[in-house]
Design a protein around this nucleic acid. Structure first.
Lengths: 314, 314
DNA sequence: ACATTTGTTGCTCATATGAGCGAACTTGAC
DNA sequence: GTCAAGTTCGCTCATATGAGCAACAAATGT
């Protein structure tokens, strides 16, 4: 009869939550003091016998957010419950976060990609006014559907009655000299300077595999990526491949990549990192632990994965 | 921006349930009064945005139980949450109910079948002391695995340090005269008399289809059952086929069936009816609405099905 | 056997909360 | 516009509840 205590806990929880009895009444009914009832109830909540769930597409997991902030030293975190339509939920949450961000950024640096495009789509019209949106990494010309990168920035700017400033350069160049030359160009230099001075950044990350947008766009071959993985790459952030420690894996490649540097991102006051899905757990960990972001927007499973790898030190 | 109110409700619920803030704090945070917060919270619970669930194999649904008692005039009801292993949960609940029943029955009348056998298995040793268990419908000899009926009654009795009294007769005889003759037999008559005087009954019901135990045992053919269904049969209770109104469908068949009569069951002080699974919704409805039981032990889905068919009259 | 730690119990008391109630405010019909 | 009906609001007040504490009990080490 070891289970008796647990069974009583269940009975108490039922009477309290299902039957709306007071702790006093329950105590009288089961012949225990009302304090005991209270203690059993909080135990039931702790043990997960009582599960309180908030069922809503815009719901968040504040408890996990708090843990992320505390254990990983983030300025803020947004965690949405697991579900199907995961990317939609995370994108919505990122859009909500951006719209609620105070002070409203005067200049917002953004990357591009599937995730960012979805965030842009879920921002509501008038989410802010007069925000200048700057693209922080290259990618205009080579893209198959020309302009994914451009439309993302443009959409975010338009909905804030601001204007978008695009980075008129490929993401990755073939030769380092060309990269240096293009960076020296007045237009590009101007955009990069503006990007470096943005008051906030919003970006996502890619996985280091052949499905990457950089491969898809023709900047890299599948073989290149395999080689990068061999060197320890876990994914890319604003076009730059990083390893598990958040360092660039290939200096040569990095010196041919146009856009904001990782150090600049690390120095930012507000860098919002949006990431969803199991495939991106590794990059997410690299980004978060290496201080590339100050704000994390993600799903429950990713949040837990990050916390497990960072055991609590009492 | 119609959704704003709902979104605020979600935020309030999160802060209250996930973040353990007080209603006061939440009010200050969102710029609303604490009373508004309280109202939003109760609305969130009503709307199902906040779902409080008790996760435990022995958990019950007290709210549904109350509705069943009130709307169907039952003396008591036990409803377990839906899950896989449904029959196990319902059987466990029935066993728990029987063990907690006060006053402890001196004589308990039981039927037999898969459900009852499982209930017997889940009763703990010493659930009561000195209870006489009487079988209320025939079925000993013809059974393939001879003794399902017998072992059920015996197991229940043994665990209460009591003794079982079996009904030494087939469930259904071929001719009405034989039935009358066997009922006249001293032994059988004695058992039936005892059964009629039991202080409580515990029984289940069968579905009217070819999978019935009565078909399986050879008492009826599949064709017989089809004919019974044509006459309106929804299932059988202690061997007797009833229609949706709880009346016997075939007087001829009924007069060949040995065991407690339905009227005797209806007159009982305590008749515990155990039923689980969607297939049995129709029989369950017939049993409950025709007053064949005073106590219902079932699963959530069955409970809801019963309540839907009995709309609340304000 | 005795001290020490650890966990449990019933309690006081400050605080959190919901029921109930008029006041203010919408809403819709004329 | 004006009124009636319905809704929402902020509030008072009685009650429900959790934090914190001292007394006690049970385990654990010496």
């Amino acid at each position: 009869m070891i289970e008796t205590a647990e069974l009583q806990t269940v009975r108490v929880a039922e009477l309290y939550y299902d039957d709306n009895k007071t702790q006093d009444e329950i105590g009288a009914l089961l012949g225990i003091t009302r304090w005991k009832v209270g203690r059993l109830l909080s135990q039931a909540r702790d043990d997960g016998i009582v599960r309180i769930e908030i069922v809503h597409p815009r719901a968040r997991r504040l408890a996990l957010e708090r843990e992320l902030r505390e254990q990983l030293g983030l300025k803020d975190a947004v965690v949405v419950p697991d579900s199907d339509a995961l990317s939609a939920r995370v994108a919505q949450a990122a859009a909500d976060y951006l719209a609620a961000l105070r002070p409203v950024p005067r200049t917002l640096g953004v990357s591009w990609g599937r995730t960012l495009s979805e965030v842009a789509g879920r921002l509501r019209d008038g989410w802010a006014t007069g925000v200048t949106v700057v693209q922080i990494n290259g990618g205009v010309s080579l893209n198959r559907r020309a302009g994914t990168a451009a439309t993302t920035a443009a959409a975010i700017a338009e909905k804030a009655s601001g204007h978008a400033i695009l980075l008129p350069s490929p993401a990755i160049l073939e030769r380092a000299e060309t990269k240096r030359a293009i960076e020296a160009d007045r237009t590009v230099a101007g955009v990069l300077k503006l990007a470096g001075a943005a008051s906030a950044y919003l970006y996502s990350a890619g996985v280091a595999d052949e499905s990457s947008v950089l491969v898809d766009s023709g900047y890299l071959t599948a073989a290149d990526v395999i080689e990068l993985v061999r060197k320890g790459a876990v994914g890319d952030v604003v076009g730059r491949y990083i390893d598990a420690n958040g360092n660039t894996v290939d200096p040569g490649l990095d010196s041919r990549t146009v856009g904001l540097g990782l150090d600049q991102l690390r120095a930012a006051e507000t860098a919002i990192f949006v990431v969803a899905g199991e495939a991106k757990h590794d990059v997410a960990r690299a980004v978060v632990t290496s201080g590339l972001c100050t704000v994390l927007v993600t799903d429950e499973a990713t949040a837990r994965a990050l916390l497990i790898s960072e055991p609590r030190v009492p």
